[in-house]
Computed example of a mutant assay.
Amino acid sequence: MTEPAVPALSIIIPVLNESECLQASLRALQPLRQQGCEVIVVDGGSRDDSVAIAQAWADVTLPSPAGRALQMNAGAKVAQGDYLLFLHADTQLPAALSLTQLLHSQPSWGFFKLRLNSRKSLLPMVQALMNLRSSLTAVATGDQAIFVRRQVFIAQGGYPAIPLMEDVALCKQLRRLARPLVVADPVLSSSRRWLQHGVLKTIMLMWLLRLGYFLKVSPQRLHSLYYG
C-alpha cells in the first residue's frame, strides 16, 4: 500500500466563535488543499457553528483550551506539514498563492505583508505603517500569517504560552536564527476591531500594549487591557 504523501504545508487556524467569517475563509483555502496542503482548525470552546463549519471544510478539527498560543501549539502538535502557517480566521491568503511560490526558497520562516479590508478613516496609513514596521524589525503580527519550518518551530518550543503578544515573542526568537521571508503579495485581514473600537483609539491601544510588552508588563495584564 502506498503511503500518503506528507503535506508541504499545514495551515493552522485558531477559532473561537468565528462562524460569521470562518466558512468564507476555509472556502478560500480549498485550492491549496488541492495542492496537498493540510488545513487544521483548533477550536477554543466555540458556542456557535464554528466546529460544524470546520468539520465540513478542514482536514482536521480539534478542541483546545482557549487562547491563541495554546490553540496554535495544539494544532502544531498534530500537523504533518514540513511548514506550519498560522492563519487568523478573519484573514485570507492571496488568492493566487501556490505552495511552490511560497516555499521554493526553503525559508526558515516568514510572514506576509498586510492589506486591511477597509479604506475608511486612517486605515490606509495604519496598513502602511504596519508593513513598514514589520519589514524593518522582522516582527509581525498574527494577522500577517506567520509561517515557519516545523522543525524550527519545535526547536524553539512553539509559541510561548502567554495570553497576548505570542506572535511578537515568537518572531523575536525566530529573527535570531534568520531573517524572515516577507511575502509582498499581501494577506487580506479584517478591519473589524479597528472600526468597532475607533481607529485612533485602537492605534493608541496597540502602541500602549507594545510599550507595555517592551517594559515587561505581564502578558496577563496586557490581555486585560486589550480585551477589557
Rank of each mutant, 00 (worst) to 15 (best):
126 V>H: 14
93 L>Y: 01
94 P>K: 12
94 P>L: 07
96 A>Q: 10
149 R>P: 05
148 V>L: 09
97 L>V: 08
139 V>Q: 13
95 A>C: 00
123 L>F: 11
101 Q>A: 13
114 L>F: 08
126 V>D: 13
96 A>N: 06
155 A>I: 04
104 H>R: 14
140 A>R: 08
111 F>S: 02
106 Q>N: 12
133 R>S: 08
97 L>N: 09
101 Q>N: 07
144 Q>G: 02
102 L>V: 06
144 Q>M: 09
92 Q>Y: 03
144 Q>C: 01
137 T>E: 15
127 Q>D: 11
142 G>H: 10
99 L>Y: 06
116 L>N: 04
113 K>P: 00
140 A>F: 10
113 K>Y: 04
155 A>S: 10
139 V>H: 09
137 T>S: 15
120 K>Q: 06
111 F>C: 01
141 T>S: 12
119 R>L: 06
109 W>Y: 02
100 T>M: 10
115 R>L: 02
139 V>Y: 12
123 L>K: 11
109 W>H: 01
126 V>R: 12
134 S>N: 12
148 V>H: 08
145 A>R: 08
152 V>N: 01
101 Q>G: 04
106 Q>F: 05
140 A>E: 06
112 F>W: 07
103 L>H: 11
137 T>K: 15
109 W>Q: 02
98 S>L: 02
92 Q>S: 07
127 Q>R: 14
136 L>Y: 11
147 F>M: 01
156 Q>S: 14
101 Q>R: 14
105 S>E: 15
128 A>N: 09
125 M>Q: 06
95 A>H: 06
156 Q>F: 08
146 I>M: 15
119 R>Q: 12
129 L>E: 15
99 L>I: 14
150 R>P: 03
152 V>T: 07
114 L>D: 03
97 L>Q: 06
95 A>D: 03
112 F>E: 02
115 R>W: 02
151 Q>E: 14
147 F>P: 01
113 K>D: 06
113 K>Q: 10
126 V>C: 11
92 Q>T: 07
145 A>D: 03
118 S>N: 10
114 L>M: 10
143 D>M: 09
158 G>Y: 14
118 S>W: 10
142 G>L: 12
113 K>I: 00
147 F>A: 00
92 Q>P: 02
119 R>I: 00
124 P>D: 11
116 L>C: 05
94 P>I: 05
149 R>H: 14
140 A>K: 07
139 V>W: 09
134 S>M: 15
130 M>I: 02
129 L>A: 15
128 A>G: 04
156 Q>E: 15
113 K>H: 06
94 P>H: 10
121 S>I: 02
101 Q>K: 11
95 A>Q: 07
101 Q>L: 05
111 F>H: 05
137 T>Y: 12
125 M>F: 13
155 A>L: 03
127 Q>Y: 08
156 Q>M: 12
133 R>M: 07
152 V>W: 01
150 R>I: 03
111 F>Y: 15
153 F>H: 08
141 T>A: 08
100 T>I: 05
133 R>H: 14
96 A>W: 03
157 G>V: 01
109 W>V: 00
135 S>M: 10
124 P>I: 09
149 R>T: 04
141 T>I: 05
135 S>G: 11
155 A>K: 10
136 L>C: 06
